[in-house]
């Protein structure tokens, strides 16, 4: 599955009902291919989440182009920042929701979908939590459940907004390994992070955002740009 994610002079932000436009980011251009991992770094409020929403298709860009090309209809998974309350569902049921694109509008998941969800939980190292309610586990574990849900939808593009937040160092390492595995399977990974050290080790490209502009930098210079030593 050869996919290409292209951002061409992308401008992202918000426009209210009266048409007033607030531009958060401008002139973002890059090209990613299957197997690439793009880490987006930048301070709080710099526009990382805005860019990620644009790239995932959850929000439209103000101008410019964002295109995911390749054979067939591309599948995208988005893992939002950990701000909402956890779902009241069991971890397995919460992960199975990621199978929605494969099910008919009136269908329920089959045993195969449940098995895939269980495998995704196993991949994140939390298979034993399958039957536990999401509101009974820690924030870090819930984060892993959300990432497992993104995996079961067999995405071509995975967009994760600060996936390392709330994770301990062991789980951050596990996550980085998992992102590399997903990329090796031919997926494109885009994630935002405040951990420049991990970005340098994991990502094939790093996009640093500062003062409304985005700069593509080599991964080994991520720490220098993030001021993280």
């Amino acid at each position: 599955m050869d996919r290409k994610l292209t951002a061409k002079d992308l401008s992202c932000g918000y426009s209210d009902k009266k048409g007033a436009v607030k531009e958060i980011l401008r002139g973002v251009s890059f090209e990613l291919e299957s197997g690439d991992i793009l880490a987006v770094t930048g301070d709080n409020g710099s526009g990382k989440s805005t860019l990620l929403r644009c790239l995932s298709g959850a929000a439209a860009p103000l101008s410019g182009e964002r295109e995911l090309t390749g054979d067939g209809i591309p599948r995208i998974s988005f893992v939002a920042q950990l701000s909402a309350s956890p779902l009241p569902l069991s971890c397995l049921d919460a992960v199975v929701l990621g199978r929605a694109p494969f099910l008919g509008k009136l269908s329920s998941p089959t045993q195969k979908d449940r098995d895939l969800a269980l495998s995704a939980l196993e991949r994140m190292g939390i298979k034993d939590l399958a039957g536990t309610a999401c509101d009974r586990i820690s924030g870090g574990e819930y984060r892993l459940v959300c990432i497992a849900r993104a995996l079961v939808s067999e995405p071509d593009l995975v967009v994760l907004d600060e996936p390392e937040a709330s994770l301990d160092s062991k789980n951050r390492r596990r996550l980085c390994e998992c992102l590399k595995e997903l990329a090796a399977e031919g997926r494109i990974i885009v994630y935002s992070t405040h951990f420049a050290v991990n970005a340098a080790r994991t990502a094939s490209k790093v996009l640093h955002i500062e003062k409304g502009a985005a700069l593509l930098i080599p991964p080994e210079r991520a720490q220098e740009f993030a001021g993280d030593y």
Partner: peptide
């Protein structure tokens, strides 16, 4: 059940 997910996640899945 999908309505309990953040809207961005649903929209990215094509919902």
């Amino acid at each position: 059940n999908l309505l309990m997910l953040p809207d961005e996640e649903c929209r990215a899945m094509g919902e």
